[in-house]
Simulated assay, not measured.
Amino acid sequence: MNILKKIAGKVLYAISKLISGILDVFIKIVETIVNIIGNVAKGFIAFIGMGGCLLLLMLSGPLGLVILMNPLILLIILFFVIFPLLGTKFVSYLKYVKYIITEFLFDRARYLIDGISYQFESFQEYKDKYKKMEEERKRREEQRRWNEQQREWEERFRQWAEYQRQNSRYSDYQWQNQNTNYGNQHSYVNPAIEFKNKYEESCDLLDVPYDADKYQIKLAYRKKAKEYHPDLNKSEGATEMFQKINNAYEFLNDSNIERYKGII
């Protein structure tokens, strides 16, 4: 009986590997197609922005009316607009399906081969684990972006302080000759000005006063995030607004609250 269980387990394991491989290839193909179409759409938008006004002028005339009345052309335009959006969600869904199916089968195979207990008893538990993993991945990504943002601000304030220190010892002409790269990049603009503007814009986005503490900011963020969460708000622009709210909340962290207090 144990031999039969091991054989069944190895067969199931092989099937799981095959399914995993097929889904990996399919996901990669779909992801590549989505990226290509998305890049083509971005390139077309960039073309219009840089010099495609003539094309828009043509499309606004009789010729444009004839072209846009063509169902095939309309279908192509809609395809390039909608497919990148839906394609990205479809790729995410495929990764989700691949995880719960293969993990479920691998667990059953390990049980048959080595007698190792299942990690979870039902598909739903695997789904819950995947969602938690995705939440953790997003949290780590947000933390990475926050760290990069903080390092960037720290470096800009450090460079400004260095400029101020050196400027007190040398003339503007001497400082510019010795630090041309810095001068070209920042034009001697105090980063505190941009920081203050961004901080206050973030506060305005969350509808909190500029002197709000972290608890007020957190409460306002939860309210705004719930209002514009894509799962709850299906209106146009809700997803973009939700991202802006997240970015504002990331920026209004403890370190930046203290930095803002020191600036004003």
Results as ranks from 00 to 15, higher is better:
Lys10Gln: 15
Gly52Cys: 05
Leu54Asp: 12
Ala192Thr: 09
Arg156Ile: 03
Lys5Leu: 12
Asn177Ser: 06
Lys214Cys: 04
Ile29Tyr: 09
Asp211Tyr: 13
Ala41Glu: 11
Ala225Arg: 03
Val66Thr: 12
Tyr221Gln: 08
Asp231His: 10
Ile245Gln: 00
Tyr99Glu: 02
Leu112Asp: 00
Gly115Pro: 05
Ile257Ser: 03
Ile101Met: 11
Arg222Tyr: 15
Ser16Gln: 02
Asn39Ser: 15
Asp107Ala: 10
Trp160Met: 14
Gly21Met: 01
Ser16Trp: 00
Ile82Gly: 09
Glu136Phe: 12
Lys261Asn: 08
Arg139Lys: 14
Leu219Cys: 04
Leu105Thr: 03
Phe106Gln: 07
Asn167Trp: 04
Ser202His: 01
Pro84Asp: 08
Gly38Trp: 05
Val189Lys: 06
Arg259Ile: 11
Glu136Thr: 09
Gly237Phe: 12
Gln119Pro: 04
Phe83Gly: 03
Phe106Tyr: 13
Ile19Asn: 01
Ile264Val: 14
Ala109Ile: 02
Val97Asn: 08
Asn177Arg: 08
Leu78Gln: 10
Asp204Lys: 14
Tyr170Ala: 02
Asn35Ala: 11
Tyr170Ser: 08
Ala41Arg: 06
Tyr221Lys: 05
Gly9His: 02
Glu227Trp: 04
Arg151Lys: 12
Lys42Val: 14
Val208Asp: 00
Met133Ser: 12
Asp231Trp: 09
Gln150Glu: 15
Ser187Met: 06
Lys218His: 13
Gly9Glu: 01
Leu57Val: 07
Arg169Phe: 13
Tyr93Asp: 08
Met133Gln: 14
Ile193Ser: 11
Ile22Ala: 03
Ile193His: 11
Ile27Pro: 00
Ile7Pro: 02
Tyr93Arg: 13
Glu141Ser: 10
Asp231Ile: 01
Ser20Thr: 06
Gln124Cys: 03
Glu200Gly: 07
Asn35Gln: 01
Tyr260Thr: 02
Lys132Leu: 09
Asn247Tyr: 04
Arg140Val: 15
Gln159Thr: 04
Glu135Phe: 10
Ala41Asn: 11
Gln216Asp: 11
Phe83Asp: 04
Ile100Ala: 09
Lys129His: 12
Val208Phe: 01
Tyr170Phe: 14
Lys28Ser: 13
Gln124Val: 05
Tyr96Phe: 15
Arg145Tyr: 14
Glu135Asn: 10
Ile22Phe: 10
Trp146Gln: 13
Gln124Leu: 12
Gly49Tyr: 11
Asp114Gln: 02
Phe106Asp: 06
Trp153Met: 04
Pro209Ile: 13
Tyr99Lys: 05
Phe80Thr: 04
Lys28Gly: 12
Phe83Gln: 05
Arg144Lys: 14
Met133Thr: 12
Arg151Phe: 08
Phe106Lys: 10
Leu18Cys: 05
Pro191Cys: 06
Glu258Leu: 06
Gln166Trp: 12
Ile245Trp: 00
Lys129Phe: 14
Ile67Met: 13
Leu232Pro: 02
Asn35Thr: 08
Glu200Arg: 10
Ile15Glu: 07
